[in-house]
C-alpha cells in the first residue's frame, strides 16, 4: 500500500503539489486523473523516488521510497517520455532490467513480446510510438514489481490494446497483487482500465474514490411524469439525493445518488409514464461529483 501524507513540492516559483494526502490500495488499478500541469507526473516521480518532496512523506509498504533501493525494486516507473538506450533492441533492454530487478521474468517477457508481435532483436529506435509504449508496458509487467507507475502510457493506444493491457493487469493483480498507478488526462481512456480514480487539480486531490462504488452509488435516471408539477425539489424532499436535474420537453434526466432499487422504488410512487436507469460513464460520474464540489469538470479535464 502506498500512503501519501501531506506531500508538497515546488519548482521555483511554481507550486506543483500543495499538500496531498491519499492512499493507494494494493491490487487495484489506480487512475490519477488531471489536466496538464495538475501535478500527476510530479506525484508519480515522487512515488517512484526520482525526486524528493519538500514536505510530507511517501510510504510504500510503510517504507520511505527516496534513495531506498529495496523499495525501488518493487516499483517500476514508465515515463511519459520513454527512454531506451541508443541502438538497443528489446533483448538488450531485457538484459538491462534483469540485472536490476531480481524478479524479472524473461520467459514471460519474451512470450509477451511475441504475443504483441514485437521482434526482440529489432532496434527499438525503428519502432513506432505505439510499439514503444507496448514495449515499455511489457517490460514493466515482466519486471515483477509490486507497483507499476505509468505516466500517460495508455494515451493514444487503441481500445483493443487497452483491453489487452487491462486483462494483463487483471492477471498480474490476481497472480501477484500488482498495483498499477496510471496517470492520464483522458477520462474516456481511463475508464476501461482503472478500478479506483483520484482527480488531481492544481496540486491537490479533489477526490479519490473506487469507480465501481461511484457507479453503484450514482445513477442516471430518465423519466416522464403524468403530473407536470413534479419538480426536483419535491423529489428531494421525498428523500432522493438528486445531484443533477435536467428537463428536456417532458423528459426529466436525474443524476441521483443511492441504490438502484431504492431510486426506482421511490420514483415509482410518482407513477411515471416512463422510467429507465441508464449506465453512467466515468466522465459523467466525474462531472457530477466535481460539480457537487463546486468545480467545472469540463474546464478541468475534458
Amino acid at each position: 500500500m502506498i500512503e501519501i501524507k501531506g506531500i508538497k513540492k515546488r519548482f521555483g516559483d511554481i507550486e506543483a503539489l500543495g499538500g496531498i494526502d491519499a492512499s493507494i490500495e494494493d491490487a487495484k488499478v489506480f487512475g490519477l486523473i488531471g489536466t496538464n500541469g495538475a501535478g500527476k507526473s510530479t506525484l508519480l516521480k515522487l512515488l517512484s523516488g526520482i525526486i524528493r518532496p519538500d514536505a510530507g512523506e511517501i510510504l510504500v509498504d510503510e517504507r520511505s521510497v527516496y534513495e531506498n533501493t529495496a523499495v525501488k525494486e518493487e516499483i517500476l516507473y514508465i515515463s511519459d517520455e520513454l527512454y531506451f538506450f541508443m541502438n538497443a533492441s528489446p533483448k538488450d533492454m531485457i538484459e538491462f532490467y534483469v540485472n536490476l530487478y531480481p524478479k524479472f521474468d524473461k520467459t514471460f517477457c519474451k512470450k509477451l513480446l511475441s504475443g504483441f508481435g514485437l521482434d526482440e532483436n529489432r532496434r527499438i529506435s525503428t519502432y513506432s510510438k505505439g510499439m514503444k509504449k507496448q514495449l515499455s508496458v511489457i517490460l514493466g509487467l515482466s519486471a515483477g514489481t509490486k507497483y507499476l507507475l505509468c505516466d500517460e502510457t495508455f494515451d493514444g493506444l487503441d481500445p483493443v490494446m487497452r483491453q489487452t493491457v487491462k486483462s494483463l493487469f487483471a492477471e498480474a493483480i490476481l497472480e501477484r497483487g500488482l498495483t498499477p498507478v496510471i496517470a492520464s488526462h483522458n477520462l474516456r481512456e481511463m475508464e476501461d482500465i482503472c478500478d479506483h480514480a483520484g482527480l488531481l487539480h492544481q496540486g491537490g486531490i479533489i477526490f479519490s474514490r473506487d469507480i465501481d462504488d461511484m457507479k453503484l452509488s450514482l445513477h442516471k435516471l430518465q423519466c416522464v411524469f403524468k403530473d407536470d408539477n413534479i419538480t426536483d425539489d419535491i423529489l428531494k424532499k421525498d428523500g432522493l439525493d438528486i445531484v443533477l436535474h435536467k428537463k428536456t420537453g417532458s423528459i426529466h434526466t436525474f443524476t441521483v445518488r443511492g441504490g438502484r432499487d431504492e431510486i426506482i422504488n421511490r420514483i415509482s410512487t410518482y407513477n411515471p409514464i416512463f422510467q429507465e436507469i441508464i449506465p453512467l460513464s466515468l466522465e459523467e460520474i466525474f462531472i457530477s461529483e466535481t460539480e457537487v464540489q463546486g468545480y467545472d469538470i469540463k474546464a478541468l479535464v475534458l
Binding site: I50, L76, Y83
Partner: peptide, 15 residues
C-alpha cells in the same frame, strides 16, 4: 537530459 535522468533515477540503484 530530464528524460534520461528520470529513467536512471527511477531504477533501484544507489546514486
Amino acid at each position: 537530459s530530464p528524460k534520461k535522468t528520470d529513467f536512471f533515477h527511477s531504477l533501484p540503484v544507489r546514486r
